[in-house]
């Protein structure tokens, strides 16, 4: 008997009596403005920076102002007008080893935890939002939801081969519990809320 069968047989014999799956949790809707406000506060709380803009060009202007002459920028959001714009896939993520700035679209923002859903559909290669030193996420205000339950209603997480909720810059507190921002991923994360 294969291990597969052995395991499944043992599980079948030993499992407790069947119990139904509980109902999906849902909570009263939160007004859009409150969501955006909460989202912005939470992103800041997890170490990110929030910038509210009314059009994509404003993002470009902001970046030009704050990053005078960055050398290695990869901009995947058409209309931002900053750095090198790229639409096609990148075959080998290793080429991004020294990337300074990546500008990426996030399709959903979650108010309760400041997370932004970034998925393969919007990425030239999966490693981009992790390998870059500064991550610039762009989220449309109407795509900000109150909590994770709503996020999973909005998203089909199995549609892309890969997707991630990203909340702030990478961090660790493994040494004596002192928080250090910038572990293996980005050292800074911006979220641009497009109103």
């Amino acid at each position: 008997m294969s291990s597969r069968e052995a395991i499944l047989n043992r599980v079948k014999t030993n499992k407790p009596a069947a119990v139904a799956l509980p109902q999906t949790l849902a909570f009263p809707p939160v007004p859009a403005d409150a969501c955006i406000e909460k989202f912005a506060r939470t992103v800041e709380a997890v170490g990110g920076t929030v910038v509210e803009v009314t059009n994509l060009a404003e993002i470009g202007a902001y970046l030009k102002k704050h990053y005078e002459s960055p050398e290695r920028v990869l901009n995947t959001v058409h209309g931002v007008g900053f750095g090198q714009e790229l639409s096609g896939p990148i075959e080998d993520g290793h080429v991004l080893a020294n990337l300074e700035i990546a500008v990426v679209t996030g399709s959903v923002g979650v108010a309760e935890n400041g997370a932004v859903w970034v998925s393969e559909e919007n990425l030239p290669t999966r490693v981009l939002p992790f390998i870059t030193e500064h991550l610039m996420l762009v989220v449309a205000a109407e795509n900000i939801v109150s909590n994770m339950h709503e996020a999973y209603v909005r998203l089909d997480v199995s549609a892309p081969g890969f997707g991630a909720f990203i909340s702030g810059p990478s961090r660790t507190a493994d040494i004596e519990q002192s928080l250090v921002i910038g572990a293996h991923g980005p050292k800074r994360a911006h979220v641009f809320i497009l109103k």
Binding site: V46, G114, S167
Partner: peptide
């Protein structure tokens, strides 16, 4: 924390 920094969903 309200969520870990990365919650990565691998499907393919």
């Amino acid at each position: 924390q309200p969520i870990t920094t990365y919650s990565s969903h691998f499907h393919r």
